[in-house]
Amino acid sequence: MDKSLLQQQVLERLAADLLHAEQSARTAHETATHEENIAENKYDTLGLEAAYLATGQARRAEAIREAMASWRQFRPGAYDAARGIQLGALVCLADADDKQQHLFLGPDGGSMQLVNDAQRVQVISIKAPLGNALLGKCEGDEVSIQIGSARQQFEVIWVE
Rank of each mutant, 00 (worst) to 15 (best):
L6S: 08
I145F: 02
I145V: 08
K137C: 06
K3E: 05
A50G: 01
S125K: 04
G131K: 11
N37C: 04
M68T: 00
Q119G: 09
A32D: 12
D117P: 02
A150L: 12
L14W: 04
L103I: 10
D108Y: 06
G140N: 07
G84D: 03
G110E: 00
D98R: 15
Y79V: 13
R26K: 12
A21G: 07
L90E: 04
Q73P: 00
W158Y: 10
W158R: 15
K99R: 15
I64K: 02
Q57K: 15
G106D: 07
P107V: 07
A82S: 05
H102M: 15
L135S: 06
D108T: 03
R83E: 07
G47D: 00
E160N: 12
A61Y: 04
Q8T: 14
C92L: 14
I38L: 14
E66W: 03
D44M: 09
T33D: 14
L53S: 14
W158D: 02
Q57I: 08
Q100F: 03
R120G: 10
I124T: 11
P129N: 05
A150E: 13
L53E: 14
R65M: 05
L135D: 09
A58F: 02
D80G: 11
D117K: 15
K127G: 10
E66P: 01
K42T: 06
S70Y: 10
G88L: 06
V123F: 09
P107G: 05
V159A: 05
N132G: 11
H29R: 14
A128P: 03
D97T: 13
A133R: 07
C138K: 12
G140C: 10
E142D: 14
K137F: 08
L53H: 11
C138L: 09
E139I: 13
Q152R: 14
Q113N: 13
V159C: 06
G136M: 07
I124M: 11
H20S: 09
Q122V: 06
I38D: 15
A50K: 03
N41V: 04
S125G: 10
Q100V: 09
A89L: 07
S111R: 11
R120V: 08
V156D: 00
Q146E: 08
E35Q: 13
T33L: 15
Q73R: 15
H102D: 04
A118R: 13
E139G: 08
A32I: 14
S4C: 03
E49I: 10
E36N: 12
L134R: 00
G88D: 03
G56Y: 08
G47K: 04
G131W: 06
Q86Y: 07
S111M: 10
E30P: 01
I157T: 09
L46Y: 12
Y43K: 11
F104R: 09
D95G: 07
L6F: 07
V115R: 15
R75W: 05
A58V: 02
A28W: 02
M1H: 15
Q113E: 14
Q7I: 12
Q146Y: 04
G84E: 04
Q73I: 05
N132I: 01
H102F: 11
R26C: 02
H29K: 14
